[in-house]
Write a protein that binds this DNA or RNA. Structure first.
Length: 466
DNA sequence: CTAGCCTTGACA
DNA sequence: TGTCAAGGCTAG
């Protein structure tokens, strides 16, 4: 009897090497890893590795370390979003066409192998062979350190004035150790503190969502795909971020007093630099990213820093901002007219296009969950050259895109058109970030950008290898 | 908790 | 109506 699955079933489970029983959660796996993945996601299980998070997972040892087993499940591409939040049985999911394509591809490959004279028994297919490598899986679905870290203290902020480099930030776990002395505070107008409004808006927009409660303890669930919940969990809390940056600025104010006030532009550079620092911290502790080698991490960040920075600024305006003003990460507001009144044509254009983008996101009612997904979409750009783990990065981008699409499906009836519109907005974001980098480069050439900071490193790094 | 087998139900 | 990838059940 020659069944359709015979070809597929010859393959080995990419997680443990056991016999494959069919497509489960995105790819061909064995029955036990299917069940393990389902239990882990449905029950929101947290595991801890007793070793150094590099346990070998095979058929005989898969029970030993569920932490590393789950990490391997994610790494080979099992999809969190394929586990149904509503636990509905039967039916088909959106992966149907993907499974079909995969089958066709395997069939094609098999035919090619046979035509080339390979015996079927000569080993696992190309996919299994690469997936059976030994990967190391640092981290995983653990609580995000940045969300639980205490506010910066006088001690850890003032200890070191070394310039921060991306290289030094990535493998490090010490948040305050690389902060450095910067200049400025300035003669710009602070209109209003927004702490109260931020807090109330924050809780309404889901800033304080407890993902455990929302997903696992309610069998019906809120309809938020698990991967979106995970992205949201990685996302820094706006109020904490505001507190951290404000605390740092207050501390550096004494330094500024010694140097005298500087321009609005210098202040913006300082803020951008601080935001970049926390952006690197966000990426470094985020799901998927922390599994990458430092070299790939650096390439991705060098490629996307300006887009991420702009997306962060824009999302702040969409979620909490007021028309006609720019809400800073510190919670303060600057009138846009104050910025553009003395600005050159490039900056005016930047501000205008940025405002238009804010408006488009606002009309689409983009929420914090969607911005969290988009950040991953932007960060995991498989088009970056010379990536070591290109396949994984591509798979993460696909997963982020799938999660965003699925979430749009949950929240909007016109999800396909809306989803397409979101992608168009990201394309405009990209173009805007190019303009912003050009603007900064010009300023840098005329020595107007405060030197010795992460902002400049990013600017130089990107233009040196692209 | 694991993993093999069972039930369900959208889709081709 | 058959397929097959979801979730469910349960002995070990």
């Amino acid at each position: 009897m020659e069944s359709r699955l015979d070809g597929d079933l010859e393959e080995l489970c990419p997680v443990c090497g056991d016999k494959v029983s069919g497509y489960h959660y995105g790819l061909l796996t064995c029955e036990s890893c299917k069940g393990f993945f389902k239990r882990t996601v449905q029950n929101n299980k947290k595991y801890i590795c007793a070793e150094n998070q590099e346990c070998r997972i095979d058929k005989t040892q898969r029970k030993r370390c569920p932490f590393c087993r789950f990490q391997k499940c994610l790494h080979v591409g099992m999809r969190l979003e394929a586990v149904r939040a509503d636990r509905m049985r039967g039916g088909r999911n959106k992966f149907g066409p993907m499974y079909k394509r995969d089958r066709a591809l395997k069939q094609q490959r098999k035919a090619l192998m046979q035509a080339a004279g390979f015996r079927k028994e000569s080993g696992p297919t190309l996919v299994s062979a690469t997936q059976q490598q030994d990967f190391t899986f640092p981290g995983g679905l653990q609580p995000d350190p940045i969300l639980h870290s205490s506010p910066p203290t006088a001690q850890n902020n003032s200890m070191s004035y070394q310039p921060a480099s991306l290289c030094s930030l990535l493998p490090s776990h010490s948040l305050g150790a690389t902060l450095r002395q910067c200049t400025v505070f300035s003669n710009w107008t602070v209109k209003a503190e927004r702490n109260d409004r931020m807090c109330s808006l924050g809780s309404a927009a889901g800033l304080y969502i407890n993902s455990d409660k929302l997903y696992s303890s309610s069998p019906q669930g809120p309809g938020i795909p698990p991967l979106v919940m995970e992205f949201l969990r990685c996302d820094p809390d706006e109020v904490q971020l505001q507190n951290k940056i404000t605390a740092q600025l207050l501390q550096e104010q004494t330094v500024w007093n010694q140097h005298g006030g500087t321009s609005m532009f210098s202040l913006m550079c300082l803020l951008a630099d601080k935001m970049l620092f926390f952006m690197v911290e966000w990426a470094r502790t985020s799901i998927f990213f922390k599994q990458l080698k430092v070299s790939d991490q650096m390439k991705l960040l060098h490629n996307s820093w300006s887009e991420l920075l702009l997306l962060d600024i824009i999302s702040r305006q969409v979620l909490y901002g007021r028309e006609g003003s720019l809400l800073l990460v510190t919670g303060q507001e600057v009138e846009l007219s104050d910025i553009t009144s003395n600005a050159g044509p490039t900056l005016v254009s930047l501000v205008q296009r940025g405002q238009e983008l804010v408006e488009r996101f606002f009309i689409l009612k983009v929420d914090r969950q969607e911005f969290a997904c988009m950040k991953f979409l932007v960060l995991f750009n498989p088009d970056v050259i010379e990536l070591e783990d290109h396949q994984f990065i591509e798979s993460v981008q696909e997963q982020a895109e799938g999660a965003l699409l699925e979430y749009s499906l949950c929240t909007s009836s016109q999800y396909l058109g809306r989803f397409a519109h979101l992608l168009l907005c990201l394309s405009e974001l990209r173009s805007l970030s190019v303009l912003a980098e050009e603007y900064l480069s010009c300023k840098d050439l005329s020595a107007e950008v405060p030197c010795n900071n992460l902002l400049i490193e990013m600017l130089h790094a990107k233009h040196s290898w692209q």
